[in-house]
């Protein structure tokens, strides 16, 4: 197991590459959710405005 983790001495490069890939995927997921939250807030604001007016 530890030999597999060592990745032939290049553990740093291999695992940081896969780490960065995971970070990219997670950031995209989070960003898509953030866009939706932002959109929802904006809309409820507009709806309140319309209903209120």
């Amino acid at each position: 197991m530890s030999e597999w983790l060592a990745m032939g001495g290049h553990a740093v490069f291999v695992w940081s590459s896969f780490g960065l890939a995971a970070a990219t995927v997670l950031w995209n997921i989070w960003a898509a959710r953030a866009w939706m939250r932002h959109a929802r807030d904006e809309i409820t604001e507009i709806w309140d405005e319309d209903d209120g007016a």
């Binding site: 995927v25 995209n28 997921i29 960003a31 898509a32 959710r33 866009w35 939706m36 932002h38 959109a39 929802r40 904006e42 809309i43 507009i46 709806w47 319309d50």
Partner: peptide, 21 residues
Amino acid sequence: LFSAANVMRRMQAENVRRNAR
């Protein structure tokens, strides 16, 4: 596939924001 789904999720948000009324 993941990025296609991600793009569609963002499009949903943008789409809803632009057609709020």
